[in-house]
Every structure is written in structure tokens, then in C-alpha cells.
Design a protein around this nucleic acid. Structure first.
Lengths: 193, 193
DNA sequence: GGGACGAGTATACGCTCGTTTACTAGCCGC
DNA sequence: GCGGCTAGTAAACGAGCGTATACTCGTCCC
């Protein structure tokens, strides 16, 4: 009973694609939670149990990795698609969920935190527009479609931001009703007041 | 006509308080525009035309300087005080102004950008609560006062964030009307839907 | 007028960052 | 079985950061 095949640290098969995916998903989680600038490539590599240099090799740079994360996201929020009838309610439910903890939407999360580098900002802006604002606009009729979609998006961002700042908030049924009214006001063709 | 009293670089009188104020106002402008982490003490010192070491001497540290900036702000947003009747409209006007460019409110601006350091986050959170959420709550009646104030604050944050991301937006009269409706929905005692 | 206090300065320290380079070692075709 | 391609590694680089130290020099009191 010697140490034949007793590798305490089990060797992982050398698999380029698998390693790439580990880095990608580690980066997705960390960027989503903390934002671009707050996450270091060393953290990402450690979380992915990979070597630092592989970030450079597989994605060119930290910014490249971030771009790959954004590009790999599902292109549409599930909540936006579907019948326009229940849209505002779905939006409200989703925003309420965001008050407590972020559902899986790294794009929105990234926006709240990633700001400094202009290159990164451009990436995020493009992505936010194409996946949220544009998709939301498609569901709307009437004038000022872009402005209305943008305002609803702003509410999403604000809710996420305040949660991140003051901590998780338990969304009550009254909160959901209020959010529904808020999104209705955001998306209304002509505000009534 | 020799170089008697011809100092090309005019000497500034040595004035501790004046220098402190220059640093403070330079820091206020830079933090507000770019957020805490994106601004270096070297930038602040350069903008204030002062030496780097003076930041440490007068404020202890970069975080101390940031705290001084927050503390030096007028404690209440003008828009919140006043008759509760026109509150939502004043909020809407203010938010609309934020869509185009930030009015003087470093607190809100800081929130959008300053996230990483827990110490800084605590500072911002405390300040945001005492100057915005709490003050707004005072103007409200009925249940869920804090939740309603928080939601209105979230809209502020979101509007500022999206402006910072996609650039200045010209707020139309329709935007103002929409924002008024949004704030009404945020602050309503019981949402009607 | 001379000395001391303090505003302002120059510079360096220690650290962390993203990135790069030179190397090691596993696998596959021959 | 072995040479070469390549996934993976270790270490270092240069830059930038916040901060600390040792200094210069203007100003004011005696």
C-alpha cells in the first residue's frame, strides 16, 4: 500500500476549452457581484483554479474577458419577452426580486458597478442598449418609445444600486404593487397627471 | 528693467485654510464626477494646485478627505424641503435636471460610483440615509414610509446612473410629466392597480 | 536681525495591479 | 518510444496607487 495513484491534489485533465469555461464562469460571477474594477484577474484565476497567465492567453486581457462575459449572456431578459399585457407586472416582480438579491442578469449588475475605464463603459453601454432598452422598446407603441424604455431601465438600475448599497431588502406585496405602478408610469404613452 | 519682482510663477501667500479649501473643493468636483475609486490623490492635489502630502496632512487620508467632502455638503436637498403638495413635481424637475447633467449634489453622485471600499460605502450609506431617505420620509404619512422614500431614492440613482452611462439626455416636458407620475407611484400610500 | 514654528515640497516606500516572458510537463501521431 | 505541439506554470516587470518621511523656506514674534 504505497503511494501508487494516491495523488492528494488530483490532476485535472488538460483541457483548454474546459479551463476557458471555468475562467469565464468565475469571471461572470465575480464581475456580477463586485463590478469590473473591483475584481482582479488574480481573484478570477484563483476562483477558476487556473493560472493567472491563462487569462491573458485565452482572452487577451482583463477587458477582453469582461467582453466575453457580456457576449456570452443570454441576449434577452426573459421578463421582457412575452405578452405585452403582463409586461409591467413581470417587470415589477423582477425588480422586486432585485431588491432582495440579484437574479441572473450580469448585464444590469455590471452597469451599476463598472464605470471607470471608457473602453469598459462602451462595452456595457452597447450591451445594455441592445439587450434591454432595445428589446423593451419593441414591446411598446406610441411616442417616445426609447425615452420610456430608458426610464424603466433606470428604475431597474436604481433598485439594484440601492440594494447593493444598503443591503438586501425584503420586498413586500405592497412593494410589488408600487413597483407595478412605477413601471406603468415609466412606460405610459402619455402620463396622466 | 531687470527681473526685480518679476516672478513668472506668482507666489501664493501661505494660507493653511485656503489650501485646505482648495483641496476640498477640488476633491468635491472630482469625486462627484468620477467617483471615489477612480480619482487619485495626485489628481486632486494637481487640480487644487497643492502638494500631494497635504492631503495626508490636512485630512489624514484619501478616505478622510472623502468624508470631509460628504460632511461639508448642505445636509438637505432643497427639493425635499418645502410644501409636501408640490413635492413630487419638484422631485420630477430635479430628476429631469439630472438626466441632462448633475446639479450640485455630490452625495447622489457619489453613490452611483463609489462602491469598492467598505469603509467608503458605509460613509456613503450613512450620508445618503440621513440626508435623503430620512428627510424624504419626514414628508410622508401612512405606512411603509421608509420603503416609499427608498424607492423614490432608487429612481434618482437610476436616472443619474443611466445618464452617466449613455451620456446627457435632453429631458422633454413629457419626460418631466412621466417622472412626476413615477414619483407619485413611488410615494403613494397605497398603490392603485 | 535671528530663531522657531509651520506651510509647503520633494521623494521614496511598500504594495497591488494587469501583463509578459521563459519555462515545465502532458498528450498524440509516427 | 519519442519528438513536437501545446496546456499549464512560476516568476518577474513596470506602472500606478496611497501613504510617510525628511526637508526647505516664508513669516512672525522677540
Amino acid at each position: 500500500m504505497r503511494d501508487m495513484e494516491a495523488p492528494v491534489k488530483d490532476a485535472r485533465p488538460r483541457d483548454r476549452e474546459a479551463t476557458r469555461q471555468r475562467l469565464l464562469s468565475a469571471a461572470r460571477a465575480l464581475f456580477a457581484e463586485h463590478g469590473y474594477e473591483q475584481v482582479t484577474v488574480r481573484q478570477i484565476a484563483a476562483a477558476a483554479d487556473a493560472n493567472i497567465a491563462l487569462v491573458g492567453r485565452y482572452f487577451g486581457s482583463k477587458a477582453g474577458l469582461f467582453g466575453a462575459v457580456l457576449a456570452g449572456e443570454p441576449t434577452v431578459l426573459q421578463v421582457i419577452d412575452g405578452d405585452p399585457e403582463g409586461l409591467v407586472h413581470r417587470l415589477a416582480e423582477y425588480a422586486a426580486a432585485r431588491m432582495h438579491a440579484d437574479p441572473e442578469s450580469p448585464i444590469l449588475r455590471s452597469v451599476e458597478r463598472s464605470a471607470g475605464d471608457p473602453e469598459i463603459r462602451a462595452l456595457v453601454r452597447e450591451r445594455l442598449h441592445s439587450t434591454v432598452v432595445a428589446k423593451l422598446s419593441e414591446q411598446l407603441d406610441g411616442p417616445d418609445v426609447a425615452a420610456r424604455a430608458r426610464m424603466a431601465t433606470a428604475v431597474f438600475l436604481g433598485v439594484g444600486l440601492i440594494r447593493r448599497l444598503i443591503g438586501p431588502i425584503e420586498a413586500t406585496p405592497a412593494d410589488v404593487r408600487r413597483l407595478t405602478a412605477v413601471f406603468e408610469a415609466c412606460l405610459a404613452e402619455e402620463p396622466d397627471n
